[in-house]
Structures are given as C-alpha cells and as structure tokens.
C-alpha cells in the first residue's frame, strides 16, 4: 500500500497558508467582545445623538490626550473606558476639537459618568482586603469610602467618573454581565447624559 503523493506547488501552499491565516484572523477579529458603556470625552455636553452628528472622527482628542484615557471605537467615536488611562479633566481634548463637538466645561463641576462596583467580583467585597481603588481615589476625588469590614462604596455625589478606579482595579480576567471591561468596577453612563 503506497501513500498517494499530493503535488503541492508553492503557490498552492501559499494560498492554503494564507487562507488559514485569514480565517484565523477573521475569527480573532470577530470574536465575541464585551460592549463598553460609551463614556464620551469631557466637554461632550451636547446630547449623545447630536455629539455623534457633530464629531468628525478626526481623532485629534485621542492623539492629544496626555493620559491615554481616550480611544476611538470602530466608528471612530472617542470614548473613555478607564482601561488604558483615566481622565484628569485637563480639557486638552476640548482645546483641540475642531468641530465644537467638545465644548468648554468647568472641570470642578463636570461629571463624565459614575463608577459602579460589582460586588460579586470585587476583591474587597469578597473579603480579600484589596483597597487599591480607595487609595487611588483618596488622592483624587475622595469618592470611594470604606466601611468597617474594608468593603468599598462609591459616593455618587462626589464621583466624577474619571475612571482611575477602573484603571487600578486588579480584576482583569473575566467579562461579567454588566461589567463589560472585565474589571470589578466600571463606569456607568449618567441617565441625564454628561452634565457640566
């Protein structure tokens, strides 16, 4: 019994390899991904639909952001998720925006969103003693407080949604139901949109 030899030319080989690579890349690119709550950059005081109309998707705000807090989604709209950096409301993005989609706001009053803690996933709530977000926020807004059992709470009136707590949260492995970023704390869009 002799194995039938297959004549495989170089071109066929390359086609085959390229096809497999393209298939693998397609699976990788279209893998199920979490949907981020889209927190718009500071100064997006327009209603969300008007912001989407007025934003040119030029990316200048993303390029200038000194803390890497901004990123562009697949349609080019800038958003903040707190994963790569957090917003300190320096308003550089407002300064460079050419279309007026981002407008000058008072950084002391402005609220980007609201941090929300997933108590099932949070290490502090699971008795681990982690208080990284509390320590980070103590230096900024003082919007996270501890109770006697070292569990963390967000004070909604002080939190301005800067995303520093998301940035320092060590939980990064799982994607849970409303925590699309995989962290135990995530930014939530405010019901009345951005206010300033």
């Amino acid at each position: 019994m002799s194995a039938k030899s297959i004549a495989l030319t170089r071109r066929d080989f390359l086609k085959l390899t390229g096809g497999f690579a393209a298939f693998g890349f397609a699976i990788f690119a279209f893998r199920p991904q979490p949907t981020f709550p889209s927190i718009l950059p500071p100064g997006a005081i327009l209603p969300a639909d008007l912001f989407r109309a007025q934003c040119q998707r030029c990316g200048k705000c993303v390029a200038i952001c000194p803390h890497h807090a901004l990123a562009q989604d697949a349609t080019g709209t800038p958003y903040i998720d707190g994963l790569s950096g957090w917003c300190d409301l320096c308003l550089d993005c407002v300064r460079v925006c050419p279309t007026g989609a981002l407008r000058a706001v008072d950084p002391k009053q402005f609220k980007l969103g609201l941090a929300e803690i997933d108590r099932d996933q949070c290490l502090a709530w699971r008795g681990n003693g982690c208080r990284l977000c509390y320590e980070k926020c103590e230096m900024l807004q003082k919007a996270i407080e501890l109770d006697a059992d070292v569990r963390v709470y967000v004070k909604s009136e002080t939190c301005n949604g800067c995303g520093a707590c998301v940035n320092v949260c060590p939980q990064a492995d799982r994607v849970t139901k409303h925590k699309s970023t995989g962290r135990a704390v995530a930014l939530k869009v405010l019901d009345n949109g951005n206010t300033g």
């Binding site: 040119q56 990316g59 390029a63 990123a71 562009q72 349609t75």
Partner: peptide
C-alpha cells in the same frame, strides 16, 4: 445625522490607525 463617510473614509481610517499606533490603541 452622522457623518457616515467619515467613518468609512480610507484616509480617515488609516489616520485613526496611525493614532492608535502612536497612542497605544487597538
């Protein structure tokens, strides 16, 4: 009510890619 072609414009897309490459995005 959206600049639709700005989203799919090849020049704009590649510029977004350049920004992502520089600023550390996807």
């Amino acid at each position: 009510h959206t600049p639709v072609f700005c989203i799919v414009c090849p020049a704009g897309i590649v510029c977004r890619g350049a920004i992502a490459a520089g600023a550390g995005g996807s």
